[in-house]
């Protein structure tokens, strides 16, 4: 007899056995299985909808932030060399991502176009353009806008800078808070889900603590006992994502079809159904699998000391 040899690598047939037993346990636990899957389902619908909302809001915020640019008005008296030197100085700043020159003629055209019908009256100014040449500066990170604008303002040949101070400041503060609050809420939701599910699973395992004790007395190692629970938790978690994923995909498909027509503001745009809905589904699947396994393995750990 060589039963006492320690086998560290699981044989494939043992893996198959664990999978089979895990499946059987799901079936044998009946209502407890339904309860666990129900807990996963409910929380993941919440988490999923919230994630969809947060990710879209985040996208809107990002679009708004990306529209932020610094207009650097160049002194009318500046010579060509000074103008070139200014461009080099701005480009030399590490936070700056792009610098575009826009002549006063282009600026006037933009202005006329943006005003539509009324703009035609401005065409008079084409002969004697009162506007400045402009460098349009974009920053790598929109949050650096204020900082960069102040730095540019101190350079020579700069008449003034304009980035819509008031609005930009408020926008950034708003975005910062809403992002943080969203993150906290999502983390909170995920933890509630884990707690809820591990509790439900704990109940099913509690009922089996005596069985776990018997298994240990018959010579089962901890991992031998744990594996079927791992499989069971994984399956519970994954089964619990079926409805949430359906809801998210169907709901998002509906929104995608209808909402974009309703909202005409060009910065408010839903993330495209493909790939966003699929990415979100994958994320929900991963969260479901994780909380299932985590809840199950954590609960069984307690009863393994016999």
């Amino acid at each position: 007899m060589t039963n006492t040899e320690v086998n560290t690598v699981m044989k494939f047939r043992t893996f198959k056995r664990h999978f089979k037993v895990g499946l059987k346990n799901i079936w044998r636990n009946g209502w407890m299985t339904v309860a666990s899957i129900g807990a996963v389902t409910t929380t993941l619908i919440l988490v999923g909808s919230f994630l969809a909302l947060m990710m879209n809001l985040n996208q809107v915020a990002k679009n708004l932030e990306e529209d932020v640019e610094i207009k650097t008005f160049i002194e009318l008296t500046a010579s060509q060399e000074e103008v070139d030197a200014l461009e080099d100085q701005i480009k030399a700043m590490p936070e700056v991502s792009s610098v575009t020159f826009s002549s006063k003629e282009e600026e006037l055209n933009n202005l006329i176009e943006s005003m539509g019908e009324e703009g035609s009256s401005l065409e008079l100014f084409e002969q004697d353009n009162p506007l400045n040449d402009v460098y349009v500066v974009k920053t790598e990170d929109p949050l650096e806008t204020v900082n960069v604008a102040n730095k540019i303002n101190k350079l020579d040949s700069v008449f003034k800078v304009n980035y819509g101070e008031e609005v930009v400041q408020k926008l950034f503060t708003f975005n910062k808070y809403s992002r943080n609050i969203g993150l906290v809420l999502i983390i909170g939701l995920v933890f509630t889900a884990i707690f809820l599910i591990s509790n439900t699973i704990k109940l099913t395992i509690m009922a089996r603590r005596k069985e776990i004790g018997i298994m240990k007395l018959v010579g089962a190692t901890n991992s031998f006992i744990r594996w079927p629970f791992f499989v069971e938790g994984l399956l519970l978690g994954v089964l619990g994502t079926v409805i949430p994923i359906t809801v998210v995909i169907a709901g998002y498909y509906y929104l995608d079809k209808n909402v974009n027509d309703l909202i005409t503001m060009n910065f408010v745009e839903l993330l495209p159904f493909n790939p966003f809905a699929w990415q979100l589904s994958l994320l929900i699947l991963a969260i479901g699998a994780f909380i299932g396994v985590w809840g199950s393995v954590m609960s069984v750990r307690k009863f393994l000391k016999v």
Partner: peptide, 17 residues
């Protein structure tokens, strides 16, 4: 667990699963 595999145990309350 490996030591227990070389010993068979029978209990008064059977301890069956």
């Amino acid at each position: 667990p490996h030591i227990r595999r070389d010993i068979g145990v029978v209990y008064q309350d059977f301890k069956l699963l």
